[in-house]
Design a protein around this nucleic acid. Sequence first.
DNA 1: ATAAGGTTTCCAGTAACTGGAAAGTCAAGG
DNA 2: CCTTGACTTTCCAGTTACTGGAAACCTTAT
Lengths: 127, 127
Amino acid sequence: MNISAAAQAAGLPVKTVRYYADIGLVDPVDRTPSGYRRYDQSAVRRLTFVRRAREFGFPIDACRDLLGLYQDQNRSSADVKRLAAQRLEEIREKQRELQSLHDDLAHLVHACSGDQRPDCPILNYLG
Amino acid sequence: MNISAAAQAAGLPVKTVRYYADIGLVDPVDRTPSGYRRYDQSAVRRLTFVRRAREFGFPIDACRDLLGLYQDQNRSSADVKRLAAQRLEEIREKQRELQSLHDDLAHLVHACSGDQRPDCPILNYLG
DNA sequence: ATAAGGTTTCCAGTAACTGGAAAGTCAAGG
DNA sequence: CCTTGACTTTCCAGTTACTGGAAACCTTAT
């Protein structure tokens, strides 16, 4: 599997996949004799995981930690649980915030969708 | 209300609030005679809105558009609805992705929380 | 009046890409 | 076999959205 197939499968730009290889975040499984990076399903799963984590604001180093959970054979259960639980709480907070953003926008759509009256309730609320 | 009170109320760093003023995204209502930026509740609401939108990956220009919905007196209902509905769909997609990320992590927590066996099912899944 | 802390502008640095150039590689058609 | 077009490589520069730090000014509380 060449880089563009892997990138497509993971939903990332080719450039980004190459960048992740450069910084050692998600390495290709190996190289072809001519130097092309080769990826497999496992690498694609890691790339997909990183994409999702990045989209929700986890920095690269946090992604590295999370991937490390999968790959470190010598990890302690306590460490794993603490790190993952902490990230889970962050995700729940993000879900709550995303819901607020959703509600704000839905309110806007509802309140402004009919006419051009200058006394739009949203304008009163926000402006 | 000085900049740090506004920043705190909106959940943003002072630096960022100043940056948003610099690029004309959220202006202070005015300045004190000595040049201090002054903010009010309305500005804080806009800052909060921007913070949430930014946290979920909307670029600055999209935030500008969204704020424009509130402030443009000459907007057309159709434009408002189209733009907001499009963003709403993006938010729903983000919610789905966030749920996937959450489930992945929860799975990890559940599967890896007890022991150090080398045949952790998550390692099989992702490694 | 002076010290502590908040604010200003300006400028440099960072994180995480992103675009583009120059050159090597591969697969298909002639 | 040769070429053409798409894909890949490395390298380096540029971008977005901050973020940190310096130097100087302002405010408030002792």
